[in-house]
Amino acid sequence: MSKRVSLVHGHPAARSRASRLARTHSYSVFYAMVLPAFAVLFAFSYIPLFGIIVAFKDYNYRDGIWGSPWSGMKNFQFLFRSGKLGLLINNTLLYNIIFIIMGMVFAVLLAILVSEVRSKWFKKIAQSATFLPNFMSWVIISTIFYNMVHPRLGVINTLMKALGEAPVDVYTKTGIWYWLLPVLRIWKTAGFGSIIYFAAIMGIDQECYESAKLDGANVFQEIWHITLPMLKPTIVIVTLLNLGGILRGDFDMFYQIIGNNGLLFKSTDIIDTYVFRTLMRTNDIGMSSAAGFFQSLFCFVFILIVNLLVKRIEPDYALF
């Protein structure tokens, strides 16, 4: 490296430019190694990213995204006037906030309690069991779920009957989903979500606990004053990453569990399911692309602002 730079004589500016060129040249092997992955990303993420202008167009199949005539804000006016957007934003935000908070609380709680378990085989079996739902597809889960809540045959209603309660048909009730979906979500993700907190706890210096013990702290004080503060960076980063998708719903979950059950849309329709339905069922490119554009832009601006705030308060925690 240094030899190559010293070969260039003359004006300092020219020299630095030459050295930059030389450096860039020496990076070419790295660029070559990144290129295949970048090519995939370019084709399937960046090109569609430019296609986002379709939200401002009067799309027709013949002219494609680039050739179709501009329509200004017409798609957005239709979307706002349809009155759908408020409900969609409301549901998407509400569920995501519940998911983020509950997910974090349960994952941290589970990680702390699992780290307290001393028996190795117990820990291993428990972790295997709690990770498993995370790897099952929502198709499989919806099959099981349907059989669990089945009004006549389901396990839950069998239990209800045993307790002398009337069976519930959840597919006709809207309010109950604000409880059911978070429970499902915790069931599926909390176990595996705890792995990152678990590893962070494993990384805490044991001497902290020893000296706390000497000062007469009990285990609950240790958790409150040592474990939780030590988990703070991980909690902040995971939460920030989740906030980046604050208006992006879990399409897989909502579509598999609720499907196209219009009865429940009031409490379960989110932007992602709306975009999908409008695109595939009614083929309304204008409305669906406008909703999608709104979602992308909102998420982007939101995470930029949050990240900026975090940078102000605690620069170490900022994502970028």
């Binding site: 569609p48 990213l49 379709v54 692309s289």
Partner: peptide, 26 residues
């Protein structure tokens, strides 16, 4: 370069442009 990769997780075109590009262009 890492940020060029990371950026796609912050901002994306959404389903509609993706679908059109995949079906009509690819």
């Amino acid at each position: 370069v890492a940020f060029v990769f990371y950026f796609t997780t912050l901002f994306n075109g959404g389903l509609v442009p993706y679908y059109i590009v995949m079906v009509n262009h690819y």
